[in-house]
Design a protein around this nucleic acid. Structure first.
Lengths: 245, 245
DNA sequence: TAAGGACAGTGACGGTCCATAACCAACACG
DNA sequence: CGTGTTGGTTATGGACCGTCACTGTCCTTA
């Protein structure tokens, strides 16, 4: 199993294609019945094979889920990055808004995938610890923190609304700064997390139907206001302003 | 089934007790294996009866889940209300902080229950539409909005940071004001939802382990800062300040 | 080119879990 | 004291996960 043999490139490609088809079918089924549960029997039926055949590619249902989670992280990261990079470099606020909107849209379009990534971790496929999901998560979320890094290196990051930072959090911020490559002030680091949590909260509530009592336009408006508030509070330039004196 | 017979009060009490025991056992098991999944067999085993006996009390696994969700909402609402009311009336900011902390603590202590209430709705037990879960949800969340109503009637609600309100959202706000009994300005209504989303986002991320890389003290600090920011942005008096001129 | 091996896939099977059906004991009530 | 309701049992069916033994096919290599 999981032979390291490297085999022939021919087989390798076919195998990769099949793995991809399985994951695709799983996502499709999840989308259809609106659940994270996937039945091997259904996947097999869709693919025109028998259930046991799937075990050639995934040792376990959990292993398939792990792969799907990693994929979902990557997909989220890619969506955010694409939307963000579609806005000119200098419009930092616009880039943040675009990234946030992508985050939201990705979640509402596919609540199952969102739940897969940000839902209650089921013991079993969270275990790997430093596994592919953890790495994928880091990659995806770095797409958001990159905005703050950008703003920082351009000298456009202002003081956030909340300036007091607890020493413990300051310590964490310093630790993370090593990963980011740039020294973001602890207060802005804190604000960055606030912004993420705020964005995530709105997204999560909406994706799971807790804003269904609102008209779609109202939801849109609320979202924009929420994201703008987060940016404002985080010291992120909102409009395309000149750098502060 | 679900006889309307009313029967003898003796039997009624016994039945209610059993139903409660079932739900309690289910919660216990959920807590133990950290999942929302509950096996009827396990519940029965814990209770010392056989699985089919449970069907005397719940027609379905979904029905049990529905009951658990409603209970969870009520529990959350009770926790929030208790924590909030433990702080003197005049300290509005303190009441908000206490309520938010209760929301957070409730979620982190029992992520399964939190996920039950705020997770991906599984088609089946979300259907009722105006069912017990919807009502329970309204009750629970009104514990949060009550803070804004309090602040409003005491004339302590200031202008929020974001003042522009989209007409669509304004319309929604007016609709909800009828439920609240007090006319909260649309801009503050919007800010209230921002505060909830912000609180919920932090809570959700933490409960599902996405803040595990932070030290507990750092998380605590981040939370307080987040909630203070939300209050500040919402025009809610933070410290026990005198009413504004 | 022929033999050996790796790999994809199948059918049969065991275990677990949800749910129903048929049956039995106990209790309330006329 | 009989009768019907209620709470419980055993037996059973069906769905699904995962394993096993086996077959066919393609690749590799001598």
């Amino acid at each position: 199993m999981t032979a390291v043999h490297a085999g022939s490139p021919r087989r390798e490609r076919a195998r990769a294609a099949t793995i991809d088809e399985i994951k695709q079918a799983a996502r499709e089924l999840m989308r259809e019945n609106g659940t994270v549960d996937v039945r091997f029997a259904d996947i097999a039926r869709v693919m025109g094979i028998t259930p046991p055949a799937l075990y050639r590619y995934f040792a376990d249902r959990d292993q398939l889920l792990t792969a799907l989670i990693a994929d979902a992280y990557d997909d989220l990261g890619a969506h955010v990055a694409e939307a963000r990079d579609a806005v000119p470099d200098r419009d930092i606020g616009g880039r943040w808004l675009a990234a946030a909107a992508a985050y939201r849209q990705w979640a509402t379009k596919d609540p199952q995938q969102f739940s897969l990534v940000f839902g209650l971790p089921v013991p079993g496929y969270v275990a790997p610890e430093e596994g592919p999901t953890t790495e994928a998560a880091a990659r995806a979320l770095s797409q958001l923190s990159a905005l703050f890094v950008e703003a920082m290196v351009r000298g456009r990051l202002r003081k956030p609304l909340i300036r007091e930072v607890d020493p413990a959090l300051e310590f964490c911020a310093h630790g993370k700064n090593e990963d980011l490559g740039v020294a973001i002030p602890a207060e802005n680091f804190q604000a960055m997390l606030h912004a993420w949590a705020s964005l995530h909260g709105f997204t999560s509530l909406e994706a799971y139907g807790h804003f269904d009592w609102m008209a779609p336009e109202a939801r849109d408006a609320l979202f924009v206001a929420q994201v703008q508030l987060a940016a404002k509070a985080a010291g992120m330039p909102l409009a395309d302003e000149p750098r502060p004196a």
